[in-house]
Nucleic acid binder design. Structure first.
Lengths: 224, 224
DNA sequence: ACATTCTTATAGTGTGACTATGAAAACTCC
DNA sequence: GGAGTTTTCATAGTCACACTATAAGAATGT
């Protein structure tokens, strides 16, 4: 009953791998990628376990053996997409976050944090949308979504606190309200809306987000 | 087979009502309000027709007789909430839109259009979220959501075109891009995030939206 | 060889949207 | 007040799909 720490893909870090567990892990990977593609194109509820098994070229019981529930497949896929790798490092401890916080220039910080968010959304925005939608049908996924939102808020708070130490925020703008604004501007919903639906490029979105955060969080100085 | 125009609640305008159809309409109304409450609290998929029938105090076959599908109940509820009344008047022909377009002051226009959006979201934001979520499970609801988004985009384009005639937009900002930005700022997702989830007041959101649109769409003049 | 782990085949359960049929109940019209 | 129409209800059943149960076959480790 003792739980070993696991990477999103199911690997136990720092432990030599069996040929069996390696094969099992590759099966899991095939299932996750197949499911992610189906989820993001056809939708969560619309995608049946049967379809996932077919696309991954495994039998249906194997899917259940590997993940247990459909929900587990989605959360695994999300973790992988958000992290971008197989390391279970919290966002706040990622290097780009440290770099952004350490940047003495407020604009530099904003640029770095927008780039970081964009990097994540490039991989994970569609899946985040899937989770958000499925949250209304599955209470457990609702918790996952709530946790993700809470996490993003925490990150934004850390960023706006840092920002407030480097420059003055706009008159009457508390660090908390600034975090809320950043949360809204840098939300996956906005990214999806502008990039996926309105056809903005990844770079356009970043430029816009940096500009928007600058204009909305810091006082207007003449050099616009 | 000739279809009469109908209000969202099912009334045929300008036609004297039977006692029967009046009763039927009141049952439809009971079903819609019951369903809307359940949808927004428990979610679309989670809410069963049985539960709706129970809350509306009608039998299950009556629900099917009145609406046919679960989806039809949701779309009816959404139409009612968005319109705010029983009149099938398109958004662009509503009085507040005319007033906003006619306002010679750019800031006045922004204030009016934000107030109009806020007024709609005050009633319809939760249901819009329900539709957005359910859109991934039901292709027909996906169309409803797409139509709603398209409609909001059209409205924003009209507004930004009008704005561009009253004042200059920011350097390099086309009217189309401005509409996209307004679409994002005034999205129901942002309203839900800031008001429902982050605890902003209805008025705070409006003030913020007016300020954000001013800063993001019009050039910075010194009087900030 | 033998045990362990992974994969598969087959059959079944439970839930919930939707359909079918038919019969009461309420209302309109004559 | 009775015939016809519309609305409501009762009952039963279909179908899709997530998930479970059981057991057997295949691959790998010792």
């Amino acid at each position: 009953m003792s739980e070993a720490p696991r990477t999103p893909s199911g690997r136990v870090p720092g432990k030599k791998e069996d040929g069996r567990t390696a094969r099992a892990r590759s099966t899991r990977a095939r299932i996750v990628t197949a499911a992610a593609e189906l989820f993001t194109t056809a939708g969560y509820t619309t995608t049946s376990i049967t379809a996932i098994a077919a696309k991954a070229e495994v039998s249906e019981p194997t899917v259940y053996y590997s993940f247990g529930t459909k929900r587990a497949i989605l959360t695994t896929a999300l973790d992988l997409a958000v992290a971008g790798d197989d390391e279970p490092i919290p966002t706040l401890e990622r290097q780009w976050v440290r770099d952004a916080l350490a940047d003495p220039d407020p604009l530099g910080q904003l640029r770095r944090q927008v780039a970081g968010a964009a990097d994540i959304y490039l991989r994970a925005a569609p899946l985040l949308d899937v989770v958000r939608s499925a949250a209304t049908t599955d209470p457990d996924l609702a918790e996952v979504w709530a946790a993700n939102l809470q996490q993003r808020l925490t990150v934004q708070r850390v960023f706006t606190d840092a920002l407030a130490r480097k420059t003055t925020l706009r008159d009457g703008l508390t660090a908390e309200a600034a975090a809320d604004v950043a949360l809204a501007v840098l939300s996956p919903e906005n990214y999806n809306l502008l990039v996926a639906h309105r056809g903005w490029s990844h770079q356009q979105w970043q430029d816009w987000a940096v500009d928007a955060l600058t204009r909305l969080l810091t006082p207007a100085d003449g050099h616009a």
